[in-house]
Amino acid sequence: MTLAYVPRRVAVAVLQILGVAVAVFALSALLPGDTAVVILGKHGTPEQIEALRQRLGLDEPFVRRLLTWFGGLAHGDLGTSLLTGAPVTAELADGLATTAVLTGVALAVIVPLALLIGVTTGLRQGSRLDRAVNSVIVVLDSIPEFALGLLLVALFSLRLGWLPATAAGLSGTSLATHPAVLVLPVVVLVCKQLCALARQIRIGVAEANTAEYTRHVRTHGLRESTVLFKHVLPNAAGPSVQQLARTVDGLLGGVVVVEALFALPGLGSGFVDAVMARDLPTVQGYALVFAGTTVTVNLLADIAAYRLVPRHRSAS
């Protein structure tokens, strides 16, 4: 059963990525204006714009450009930046380290914290602690990233002087030697993404904890820790793993704002720059990475969730 599900789900994911690739190419081609216009700015004459457009290959028919791009993709070649002439893969690699560290650290904080909050409050549903903790995380969730970021900068950087306000002047590689610049961006991402996952775990734990099968095993005199780890958590895990995938999606969206606000040289700020410059191959490369990550994470989450449902596990 599982073996049939996994290939089917992988096939769907591959189709999703192909669909996203076509959609990304079509949508980025629909952006008003093009690289030639942006490069030449307000000083460009129509003749100069046309000449540059030809030089950059922007005058070629849409379908030919699409096929050329797909031909490159098949060989792992995402094309060349229209602005710098560098391979798009190199442009992506520049920002990857920053974004990977940012989202990785945020995730490493979110998962255990959400588990702790979700399990603790789920087991004490309706208690004063449950209500208090829920109120706090809902409030944090309701503050937009940029507003929370500005508040934290005002307090911890400007007022108290404890943490750097931005990563101005640091490159992706030099961030490793200045980890303090990541603290506020990570806190913003954690505050924004913690709520949904913690609440999903809480609901799952609360439901599993009061379910008939749990009451049944308790009547057999099992220890509470055994009930929790063998019956409550496994049953709560499926939906939570899927929520975790959505949390990763949320983090990828959040880094676009956070990287701009803290002047971090990551994939999010690179993506925005590429869109602003109408550097279509680079825009397509970034969009593909973001979309590919989302599809892959959701694929893994679905498979994991499928496997975590006890009846599927026993069937396999």
């Binding site: 940029f146 507003a147 500005l150 508040l151 900068v153 005002a154 307090l155 950087s157 400007l158 007022r159 002087g161 404890w162 943490l163 750097p164 306000a165 931005t166 990563a167 101005a168 002047g169 640091l170 030099s174 200045h178 303090a180 610049v181």
Partner: peptide, 28 residues
């Protein structure tokens, strides 16, 4: 709206001894 948020929050919070804010990235 961001600038308004910044103006308000920084204006309200950054009244302390900002000159001493040494939380530099140390990149220089």
């Amino acid at each position: 709206s961001r600038r308004r948020v910044l103006s308000t929050t920084l204006g309200a919070l950054a009244l302390g001894p900002l000159a001493a804010c040494g939380a530099n990235t140390g990149a220089s």
